[in-house]
Design a binder for these strands. Structure first.
Ligand SMILES: [Mn+2]
Ligand SMILES: [Mn+2]
Length: 311
DNA sequence: GTGCTAA
DNA sequence: TTAGCACAACGCTTA
DNA sequence: TAAGCG
């Protein structure tokens, strides 16, 4: 239970004594960023990120040998083998007719435990175990093909424009990879199928206004070089990288909450990395706080759509 | 990355 | 004590 | 039913 060396040691987090291994292993070969650097980042940012993970089942995407090594997903925890202090939730899986013990990342100790398992990124559900079938937001997930990022910006601003017309707040962040995420807070009031239908409605309006740039066609081969507006993420069990999550990509980019004023032709998502975002977060605070708030009234939004001739 | 088993 | 090994996803949509 | 997709 004692410290060994700087590569393999125990860290006391609250009541928990965490065994951290291979802290010197390079996870990002092009950047010289180690597993320990990732752990340090999450240690610093825990109070910002944990609210977006709390009580949400996790799809772990593990990279035990760094971003160029083999990776795998893990959802089911073996309750016989994991530490008893971890919080899990048993959820029935229809496709396999069995129960899955999902891990819940509810505190800093779990955050660092998962990072030590090789979880570079955090992929929580859009709903919590409190209301499993009712997501806290609608997701408009913008996934570019080989588009100029200016087109992604243009698409996000079109989502914003439509939501402005409907007098409804929405919030933007970089995905940390190539795209952008726009979330519309809904405060776990509506079921996934309802929220998915709403998102599809918005996605269709975007494609109507930007037919050359955006698409909701699922098969890549039929999509052309267009930005995929992925409304299908609004389903139980589907996940997106959370706000403040690192991504397993060169540079160790971070999914970074943005002010809408920053969503302009100068925006470059590769600029936000673990090497510089902490300073930004100190300055800006949690720009996404309202995403966890009360949420909009969907009935009211749909009423506005039906009454507005431009919709 | 971890935990179990066979050597 | 250790080298070797098994094991770690789902829920749709679309053809 | 199987493959594709994120
Ligand atoms: Mn995306
Ligand atoms: Mn997507």
């Amino acid at each position: 239970m004692n410290s060994k060396n700087e590569n393999d040691f125990y860290l006391k987090v609250g009541e928990t004594n965490l065994h951290l291994t291979n802290q010197n292993k390079i996870y990002f070969p092009g950047d010289g960023i180690s597993k320990g650097d990732i752990l340090n980042y999450y240690n610093e940012v825990s109070t910002l990120i944990v609210p977006y993970l709390k009580d949400r089942p996790e799809s772990m995407n593990r990279f035990p040998n760094g971003i160029n090594g083999a990776s795998f997903y893990q959802k089911d925890m073996d309750l016989e083998k994991i530490p008893s202090w971890l919080k899990t939730e048993k959820i029935y899986s229809e496709s396999n007719d069995k129960y899955i013990d999902y891990l819940l990342c509810n505190d800093k100790a779990t955050l660092l435990y998962m990072a030590n398992l090789g979880c570079i990124e955090f992929n929580p559900w859009n709903s919590t175990i409190k209301k499993m079938d009712k997501p806290d937001w609608a997701v408009i997930d913008l996934d570019p093909a080989k588009n100029d990022f200016k087109e992604v910006v243009k698409t996000a601003l079109t989502v914003k424009k439509i939501m402005d017309e409907l007098e409804t707040e929405c919030y933007c962040k970089t995905s940390g990879a190539t795209g952008l995420h726009v979330y519309i807070p809904l405060g776990n009031q509506y079921r996934y199928d309802t929220v998915k239908l709403f998102s599809e409605l918005i996605a269709n309006k975007v494609v109507e206004r930007l037919p050359e740039i955006a698409s909701i066609t699922r098969p890549i081969g039929n999509r052309g070089n267009k930005i995929y507006i992925d409304f299908l993420q609004n389903r139980q069990g589907q996940t997106l990288a959370s706000a403040y999550s690192v991504r397993p990509r060169p540079g160790a980019t971070v999914s970074t909450p943005l002010e809408w004023e920053e969503v302009n032709e100068k925006l470059s998502p590769a600029k936000f990395t673990i090497k510089n975002v902490l300073k930004r977060f100190d300055k800006k605070g949690d720009l996404w706080k309202p995403v966890l708030g009360k949420g909009a009234n969907l009935e009211l939004i749909l009423k506005k759509i039906s009454e507005n001739p431009t919709h």
